[in-house]
């Protein structure tokens, strides 16, 4: 029996495919690779049709929703239901990102139809003795155990993927059907999107920031903070530090990073004057990229870092700030030229 894999593609602000969307495509291709048909659902607020015609799917169905409505899952759900009324197959597996916007759509759809759903999947494999059934790996109890779950055989199955595993490169194809679904009137939602804003680095929590700056014993004087503060402004990063920095009074207690403080999961960690004790490294073990600046070449942080500079931070940081500022200015200039 042919299975239709239907991907609800996640977008950035309704107008751009990101690594998350391509990651979902990659996951979809690993499920029943030989016997399935691939369908994409794109609810967007302004993606050019030419981009939709190059998606690596057999069929693409898309709905245009104004951006204010795109931010509200109620409208996604209405669009999703309208598309589902068109695509009817014997067996369907709907794949979503676990982003709250899409997660809510998936839960509502599965509940409305009484179909099974598994959320936050980390890995999906075919069951050894039942090739038509899927085995889904999930993390439970905050990562202290894994759970393997499977769907009962039903016509439709809903699956959301953990966002951390959705990462892929752009892929292209030639869909046989690219159809726009026109929805004349949406039922108004009692939820209204008002605005979106970036949190300033001073208010941003260490655990929520994309970039975190950590300072240690090497930064001994508060008066030498200027360049670090400038760097924090440019990359919108809160400033934390090691246990020593806390004890020296360079940072408040709640900004301590490490086994005795906060564990961070930032994408980028800039360690300035931090030697990298095992307790501190414990607190940054989930960080993707580490940049270390330290004048001691034997500092343990250099074993953990992706890029390291052996040197005085008072020389390195201002130059890095200048380089980043120059980069930003040129970006603004290019944007200005395009607009003009």
């Amino acid at each position: 029996m042919e299975t239709n894999i239907i991907c609800y593609l996640p977008l950035k602000n309704g107008v751009m495919f990101t690594e998350e969307a391509w990651g979902l495509v990659e996951q979809a291709k690993t499920i029943y690779p030989n016997t399935s048909k691939m369908t994409a659902i794109v609810v967007h607020s302004g993606i050019p049709v030419i981009e939709l015609e190059q998606l690596p799917f057999d069929e693409v169905y898309h709905v245009h929703v104004p951006i204010e409505q795109w931010k509200v899952s109620d409208y996604h759900f209405q669009a999703f239901r309208r598309i589902c009324a068109i695509i009817q197959h014997q067996k369907e597996i709907f794949l979503f990102s676990s982003h709250p916007l899409y997660h809510d759509v998936a839960v509502r759809a599965s509940t409305r139809l009484g179909m099974p759903m598994i959320t936050n999947a980390l890995k999906v494999i075919e069951m050894e003795n039942q090739p038509s059934s899927l085995l889904v790996k999930r993390e439970i109890y905050q990562g202290k155990a894994n759970e393997f779950v499977s769907f009962a055989p039903t016509k439709q199955q809903y699956l959301t993927f953990e966002r951390s595993i959705l990462y892929g490169r752009p892929q292209y194809g030639t869909p046989s059907i690219v159809q726009e679904i026109d929805i004349e009137k949406y039922e108004p939602s009692p939820i209204q999107f008002i605005s979106e804003s970036e949190i300033d680095w001073k208010e941003l929590k260490l655990t929520e920031a994309k970039v975190v700056i950590g300072i240690g014993r090497g930064v001994q004087d508060k008066n030498e903070f200027d360049s670090i503060v400038k760097l924090a402004e440019i990359v919108n990063a809160p400033i934390g530090g090691s246990k020593v920095a806390d004890e020296l009074g360079l940072i408040p207690r709640e900004k301590r990073i490490g086994a005795s403080g906060t564990s961070i999961e930032a994408d980028i960690y800039i360690a300035i004057g931090i030697s990298g004790s095992s307790q501190h490294l414990e607190g940054i073990k989930a960080v993707k990229h580490v940049i270390a600046i330290n004048n001691d070449p034997s500092a343990a942080i250099f074993q953990r870092c992706d890029i390291g500079i052996v040197g005085n931070y008072q020389q390195v940081v201002p130059r890095l700030v200048d380089a980043l500022q120059a980069e930003r200015q040129s970006e603004t200039y290019v944007e200005h030229l395009h607009i003009g």
Partner: peptide, 8 residues
């Protein structure tokens, strides 16, 4: 991370 959406 760092982005906040406000809804009514």
């Amino acid at each position: 991370r760092g982005t906040v959406q406000t809804y009514e």
